[in-house]
Structures are given as C-alpha cells and as structure tokens.
Design a protein around this nucleic acid. Sequence first.
DNA 1: TTGTATGCGTTATCAC
DNA 2: GTGATAACGCATACAA
Lengths: 345, 345
Amino acid sequence: MSRPNASIYDVARRAGVSIATVSRVLRDSAVVAPQTRDRVLAAAQELRWRPNALARGLAGAHHSAVGIVFPDLLGSYYAQVVLGYEERAVADERSVLILATHGRVDTDDLVLDLADRVDGLVVMDRTVSDDVIADLERARTPLVLLARPGVGSTPAVRTENAAAAAELAGHLLGHGHRRIAFLGDPDAAPDVDERWQGFRRAHAAAGLRAPDKPVRCGFLASDGRAAAATLLGAGPMPSAVFCANDDIALGVYAAAREHGLSLPGELAITGWDDNPSASAVTPTLTTVAQPLRDLGRRAGELLVARIAGHPAASVTLPTRPVFRHSCGCGDAPHDSSLSTEEISG
Amino acid sequence: MSRPNASIYDVARRAGVSIATVSRVLRDSAVVAPQTRDRVLAAAQELRWRPNALARGLAGAHHSAVGIVFPDLLGSYYAQVVLGYEERAVADERSVLILATHGRVDTDDLVLDLADRVDGLVVMDRTVSDDVIADLERARTPLVLLARPGVGSTPAVRTENAAAAAELAGHLLGHGHRRIAFLGDPDAAPDVDERWQGFRRAHAAAGLRAPDKPVRCGFLASDGRAAAATLLGAGPMPSAVFCANDDIALGVYAAAREHGLSLPGELAITGWDDNPSASAVTPTLTTVAQPLRDLGRRAGELLVARIAGHPAASVTLPTRPVFRHSCGCGDAPHDSSLSTEEISG
DNA sequence: TTGTATGCGTTATCAC
DNA sequence: GTGATAACGCATACAA
C-alpha cells in the first residue's frame, strides 16, 4: 500500500479502452484484439501499473496465499519442512504466510487471524488446539495437518515413526544393549510419541523390559546435553541412548565426552532426522533419515488440492534407518531399506 | 476465502444498527453507546462473523502485513533471523509473508509480487537486485536491508564483521600460525566479504602476508568438508583454517579427522555465528557470536517505523569473538569484550 | 450517538 | 471484441 499508484482506470483511459478490457488483457482471459492488447500493455507499462492485490482478492474471493503454523525454526527440522512448503506454494503462484507459536499461549487468535488472510492452512504438531482445528473446519477453511494425526476429515501428512523406531531399537538390542535410555518428550510432539511406542515395542518383541519412562527433554542440543549430564551422573548407567532427534544426540556426544566416555564403546547413541552434521561428527551418527523437504512439499500439494475442491487423503512418508558408527557398528555402515512404502489413506 | 460468511451487513441487520456502527465497535473507534455496543458484539458472536481482511485492507489502504526475502533457511543463521523478525512483526499485529529465493533466477517478479501484498519489506543479502531495490524505493515501498549495505536512503541492519574478523585472525596469528586458510565465498554474501577484508587486514597489521585468495565454498557443513578435503589433500598444508561460519567449520572437523589430523594441534579452526553446536563439539569451537534473533527483530522494528512514516537510520549490531579450544587456546576459554558498540547512522 | 452515502480497485455479468 | 455496471465487504466523511 505504499504506492499512490495508477489504477486500472488510469490505464484504461490512457489506452483508450474500458477497464473491462484492461482486466481482460491482464488475465489474458477472453479474446482481445491484438492491437488493443498491445495498447493496454503499453499503457500499463508506462504508468508502471501493478494491479492491487487487495482489490483483486476481494473481487475474486481468494487470497492467492497459503499459511503455515509451526512452533519455531530451531534445529534443522522445521526449517526444511517450511522450505519445502514454500517452494510448492510459490510454484502454485501463492504467497506464504507464516506463524511461529514460540511458547505463546494466545496462539488461537493469531491462528484465526492468519486463517482470514489465506485460502488454506497447514498446521504442524500441536501448535493449534483441536478446538480451533474444528472451528476452522466448520468455517470451511481448507486445512492440512502436518506431523500430527489427522482429526475428523482433515488429512494429515506424516512420516513413519513407530516401525523405524522399532527397527532401530531392535538393532541396539541386537548389539547386546540391555539398558537403553530414551531421550525426548513424547508429549512434545506426536512424532516423538510414536518413536517412544516403537522403542517399547522392540523391547517387548525381544522379550525384554523397556524403561518405564523416557528421559524427557527438549529438541535442542543443549537440552540433550543437560539431560545426558544428569543421566550419566547418577544411577545405573545406560549402555546406549536412543535420542528423539539428531540435535539431542549431538548434545549427548558433548555430555559423554565431558564424562570421559568413549563412543560408541562405553555409550552407543542414535539420533533421528539425519542432519547434515550426523555424518560429519565422530563417531558418525546412526540415525533415521526422513524426507523433510518432501514432507513440506506434500503438505503444500495436498492443501492446493483441497483448495481446488479436490478430495485429499492422508499420506505417510517412508523413513529409513541409517546405520553408521555411533550405534556400535563397525567400519561398514549400511543403510537399511525403506522402513515403509508410502502409504495413502 | 473459505467461508461464505456473514458480512458486516448481516451483523448490522441482526443488531438493528447500521454498518457504520458495527464498524465502529469493531475498531472500538469513536464513541458507541454501551448497550449498542453489546448488541453488536452479540450479533457478531452469534453470526460467527469475522471481518474480511481483504475488504478491510482495500478500504483502509494497508495490508497489516510485512514481508521478508531470504535465500533459504539452511543452517542456523537465517532461521534465527527470520524468527526474530516474525516475532517483532506479530507483536505489531502484522502477518508475515516469506519468500525464499533458493537458487531461483526469476526472483525479481516474485519479489515485486510480494511487495504488492505487504506494507513493507525486508531484504536479506543479495537476494534482490539493486534494480529492483531501486524500483521498490521509487514506488515508495518501505524497505529495510538486512545483512547487506544500505543503498541510497534505504536503511540497513547489520552485524559488525571486519573488526571481529581482524581480531580473530590476529588471535590466530598470535598463536603463531603463519599459514591460515580462509574458507568461504566473499561473493556469496556481503558479511563474508567483510570478514575476508578483516582477515586480510589483520595480516597486514602484523606485517604478514595473507593468502591471495579465499578457498571458496558454500555455507553448509558439506561444503566446508569438501573444501577442506581438497585443501588438506594437496599443496602446503595450512596450520589453521578461518571459516566463514560454524557449519563450514564443522565440515572441516570431519575432513580433518578423515585425514587423521589432531585438533587443534595439527589444525586450528575457527567459525562464525556461535551455533548451539559450537560449544558441543570437540574441541569446542572458537567462533564469533552475533545476535541473530535481534538482527531480525531490529529489522522488523525499523520497518515498522518506516511504515509509520518515521525516519529510520541504519544500525550495526555488535559481535563478540568467543575463544574456546579449537583455535589452540588451553583449558581457560575466555570471551572477548564486544568488538563494537552499537553503531547508528 | 448513530445513520447515509461514497470510495477503495478489481472481477464478472451482462448487453451491444 | 468491447463497454457499462453491479458486486465484493469494509472504512469513513458528512449528516442528522
């Protein structure tokens, strides 16, 4: 709204046509005589006219924009997902509005406001209350859930967690580990909860007893470091640590070194995400790769489809354990095959 | 645009008042009789009415939104800055639109489109051509530059680079290093260029000869790793590596280990940014801390001021070298004082 | 204190 | 092919 700019009327006048014609050439809809078209284009150019997005939206009943709500951008996870989403949205000629909830509590109103400015919305994790989700659905706002289970008829885009977690935990168990700590907060995100479930399932499948509860901590390296410091400082030491993500795992590396523990000999460690740094640290980190960028992209795709009125079904993207050195594997790290095929429905 | 919703007319009718009155209570502007106000509020509630953002913007000639253009969100840098910006914008009741340029070349049009949907714009690095910057200024779009020099009367928010780089390089020189490689691409970002200048200045000040040119590489750990692999594989080995950011430095750690080099004994390393992982790796990384979140916040602040019509001057935020172990310092890491006071103008 | 009327800059439905 | 003109939903002078 910075330009006290030319309007469609000015262009029409200068080109000697009506605004209807200007609108037509602008959207190259309908048939316009080539020479008329050229005159309009020339006039628009000379006046440096750019159609007003607000007016266009009001008249056309659409924003040409989509939104996404996420907790924050710390760590490598959200940034990648958001980037994939943005890419898809822009490819569809839509602007993307973001809303980070941080630790804010008054989030509901912000989300509702955001919803008023877009044609559709992607909501990650548990950033938005189920009440608001329901309100939005009731108001017919096209919605796609990301990294959280679908509710009602709202589709969700997710990555597979439980099976991969079970495979990874089973692998650790196979290495002979009998005291494996789980670092991460199942209540912090649905994904973590599913990893925790898979972790327990692997123990059960092996006829072993999993720890009663996880060692709860945040998603950052500093969180993992603090949690590990406590863990390693008291009580019976675990021989392995299953971390909810790579950042946490990296924090555990630091804590383990401070305790003079050799890795993976005295402490095996696994992460999740396959960060760029996962393959750069020593020992290289055994983790689970997941298509973060695609995750965002698919969410954008589903949303665009819903906006167009097409039905959209939930999708679960496959994940893949990547065995490197930190779990105790030797010099021949190998990748597992996909833990799951892509699932629709 | 999902709700075939109630309009201000519906609310007015239901409350038995005119739309002007509804508008008044909505913005609680002017004086409205308490009981009238209550009736309107009740009607709005019952109809679940939410004012149309497009219509509001069109009538009021503003978007209540701001935008930001950045290259991507990889690494820890941009994400933090964007987060700070978003926070500030939302505090001002503005939505934030993002545009990542990735490697795209047709960026100019996207930026112009974005500009049509916001009240003001922040542009990072060299994501936008100077031509477009000029166009935007000419069109009176409030603009703030971020992590790049100001142009004309457009204010910029930056962090100090040259002095801190000189201090850091001088420190390395003080440790006795005589072959220090610079890893990073001065052409990739103005900040990197200034670090390169400071790096050279320190050599000159010590009467020593700096390398003729930098070892150019991208911003990611993988880039640093590849560059370091080449560097360490051929020619005379440097005894220290000055990296343009922490991610690059982490990549160098990996390459150094593959070459069997002990750190920092056989190779000293410094980074930039003070990532969360900088203090978690072994040896802890000597780097330069800069207030990323504030950087974004200040940009938002300046932009909001400009939008309000206030004059806004450029700002340079202070940075601070953090000496840890990777540069060869012993067990008593210490922080330097601020490299600069905050500078306005 | 409240209502009337007009403008904001498009799109789209009609005629011509 | 092109031109009037009515929405679109709200804000706001101007009246009352």
